[in-house]
C-alpha cells in the first residue's frame, strides 16, 4: 500500500509538469499582445511597453519564459499579473468561494444522488423510479446556463429569495444553496442513474440470492453486501466529478456573480495572462490527482479483494 501511494505520488510529478507545460504553451500561442489586452483600447506609451516587456520577460523565447515561471513556482512564488497584483493573493481570495460552492454541490450529489439512486434501484419500475428517470433525463438534456438563469429568475426574482441572485457575504451558506444545486445538477442526475443501474444489477447477482437464502436480514443484505459492491463505480464517478465541479464552476460563478476561481480563470484567458491561468490550472490538476488517489485507496476499503502492491 505504501509503495503504491509513493509510486502514484511520483507519477503525479510528471503529470503536473506535463499539464503546466501544455497550458503555458497554449496560452503562449494564443496571446497576441498581452500589454495591449491589459490597457484595452488606449494606446500604450513606448516606455511603459519597454518596462513591462523587461519586467515580465515578454521578449524572451517560450522555453526561457516557461523555465523562469516554473522555477519561481517551485519556490512557491506564483508571480504577479501584468497589472502588478500578486497572483497568490488573488488565488487566496478566490479559492474559498469556489471550494465552498463545489463542496456544497458535492454534498448534494452524494446525499441526494446516492439516496435517490438506491431507492430507484431497489424499486425498479415503480413510480419513484420512473419519475427520477424522466427528471434526470431532463436535467442532463438542459445546459447549465439555461437552468441557471431560469432558476435565478424564478426563485430570486419571482419568489423573492433575494440571496439566490448573487449571494452577498452576509447571506452565508444559504446564498450558495441554489448555485450549488445548479452546479451539481448534472452530476446529481448522473449519480442517480449510475447508482440505480449498479444497485439493480447487483440485486440480481448470485451472492445477493445466496445471502437471502442463508437467512440474512434484508437490511444486512442491502446495507452491507449490496452497497459495498454497488458503490464502486459510483465512487469512481464521484472522484472524477469533484475535479469537474471545481473547474465547471466557471459558468455557475458567472451567472450567480460569485468571485471565485472561474471568474479569475475567465479574466486570465481574456487578458492573455498566462501565469494566472497556469497557476489556477495547476492547482486544479493537483486537486484532481489527489482526489483520484483517495478514490483508488477507497476501492480497497470497499472491496477487500482489491490489493495494491
Amino acid at each position: 500500500m505504501f509503495r503504491y501511494v509513493v509510486r502514484r505520488l511520483l507519477q503525479m510529478i510528471l503529470v503536473f509538469f506535463g499539464t503546466t507545460f501544455i497550458v503555458y504553451w497554449m496560452m503562449f500561442l494564443g496571446s497576441s499582445d498581452p500589454i495591449q489586452a491589459l490597457v484595452g483600447e488606449k494606446p500604450v506609451s513606448e516606455s511603459v511597453r519597454a518596462q513591462l516587456t523587461e519586467q515580465y520577460h515578454l521578449d524572451e523565447p517560450f522555453i526561457v519564459r516557461y523555465l523562469i515561471y516554473m522555477s519561481n513556482l517551485l519556490r512557491g512564488d506564483f508571480g504577479t499579473q501584468l497589472n502588478g497584483r500578486s497572483i497568490a493573493d488573488i488565488l487566496a481570495q478566490a479559492w474559498p468561494y469556489t471550494i465552498r460552492l463545489a463542496v456544497l454541490a458535492m454534498i448534494f450529489v452524494i446525499v441526494f444522488g446516492l439516496t435517490g439512486g438506491i431507492i430507484a434501484g431497489l424499486r425498479q419500475g415503480g413510480v419513484f423510479d420512473n419519475t427520477t428517470l424522466a427528471l434526470t433525463l431532463l436535467v442532463i438534456g438542459i445546459p447549465t446556463f439555461v437552468t441557471g438563469y431560469l432558476a435565478q429568475y424564478i426563485f430570486g426574482v419571482k419568489l423573492g429569495v433575494s440571496a439566490w441572485i448573487s449571494p452577498k457575504p452576509e447571506d452565508g451558506l444559504w446564498g450558495y444553496v441554489l448555485p450549488a444545486l445548479i452546479l451539481g445538477a448534472l452530476s446529481l442526475a448522473t449519480a442517480i442513474r449510475l447508482t440505480r443501474t449498479s444497485v439493480g444489477e447487483n440485486l440480481r447477482a448470485d451472492y445477493v440470492r445466496t445471502a437471502h437464502s442463508k437467512g440474512l436480514a434484508r437490511r444486512r443484505v442491502i446495507g452491507v453486501h449490496l452497497m459495498r459492491n454497488s458503490l464502486i463505480p459510483v465512487i469512481t464517478f464521484l472522484g472524477v466529478e469533484m475535479g469537474n465541479l471545481m473547474g465547471g464552476a466557471i459558468v455557475t460563478e458567472r451567472i450567480f456573480n460569485i468571485p471565485g476561481v472561474g471568474f479569475q480563470l475567465f479574466n486570465g484567458i481574456r487578458l492573455q495572462d498566462g501565469p494566472t491561468v497556469v497557476a489556477i490550472v495547476s492547482i486544479l490538476v493537483v486537486i484532481y490527482l489527489l482526489v483520484n488517489l483517495v478514490v483508488d485507496i477507497l476501492y480497497a476499503v470497499l472491496d477487500p479483494r482489491i490489493r495494491y502492491s
Partner: peptide, 14 residues
C-alpha cells in the same frame, strides 16, 4: 460578471 445577473438583482431590489 454578467449584466443579466445585475438586472435580476435590480428587479429584486438588491
Amino acid at each position: 460578471q454578467d449584466q443579466e445577473t445585475a438586472f435580476n438583482d435590480l428587479l429584486a431590489g438588491n
